[in-house]
């Protein structure tokens, strides 16, 4: 795999990781996630034919469309910590994660025969997703964390599994998560049914 092609993409993923942690505006978050899905698609495109790789892009963007259908209140997006120091702590944590990812990716790549760029890109998203899941308690942030984590996993899994059905089902899982995210955003406002 050409590193000249993948290195800028890995850089873009790092920017998206950072942005997801510092941005609290709904529209910007959706744009960042859209770009992230585009990068995932570009990476997978180096392994899969266009038609199959497009499943990642279309599935991801459809998930975002479902999520974007009901914008949350601003307080449903902000972190638990006070704004300034909370952001500093989150960025520091992300920095540590990048250190870990860039340290262990070559070893994992050797152990599993998965190319280094794919392993690094995948691990960046997986750990960024885990960080979001660990930091945030808001349902919509949890869903964004899970979508990010699954995107990272899908990059790595694309190297070993070429099944169209699996790709389709994973896209369905992404969509399902987005539906659940949308549901969780509106559940408390729905009519009491118990």
């Amino acid at each position: 795999m050409d590193s000249w092609f993948t290195l800028p993409l890995i850089g873009l993923l790092m920017v998206s990781n950072l942005s997801l942690l510092v941005v609290n505006d709904w529209r910007r978050l959706m744009v960042i996630l859209a770009v992230q899905y585009l990068v995932v698609f570009s990476l997978v495109l180096s392994l899969w034919p266009l038609g199959m790789a497009a499943i990642k892009l279309i599935g991801g963007w459809m998930s975002l469309a479902v999520l974007a259908a009901h914008p949350p209140q601003p307080e449903a997006l902000s972190a638990n910590q006070p704004p300034r120091w909370g952001t500093v702590v989150r960025v520091l944590a992300l920095g540590l994660i990048w250190l870990v990812v860039f340290s262990i990716s070559p070893m994992l790549s050797d152990a599993t025969f998965i190319p280094w760029p794919m392993m690094t890109a995948g691990m960046l998203l997986v750990w960024s997703g885990l960080l979001q899941l660990g930091i945030y308690r808001q349902p919509i942030r949890v869903i964004i964390g899970l979508l990010t984590l699954l995107s990272g996993f899908e990059i790595i899994y694309a190297v070993v599994e070429f099944s169209l059905l699996v790709a389709g089902l994973l896209a369905a899982v992404n969509l399902g998560l987005a539906f659940i995210g949308s549901y969780l955003l509106t559940a408390s406002e729905m009519e009491d049914q118990t």
Partner: peptide, 8 residues
Amino acid sequence: LSPPGEKP
């Protein structure tokens, strides 16, 4: 587990 009308 989080039915309509209840906060998740």
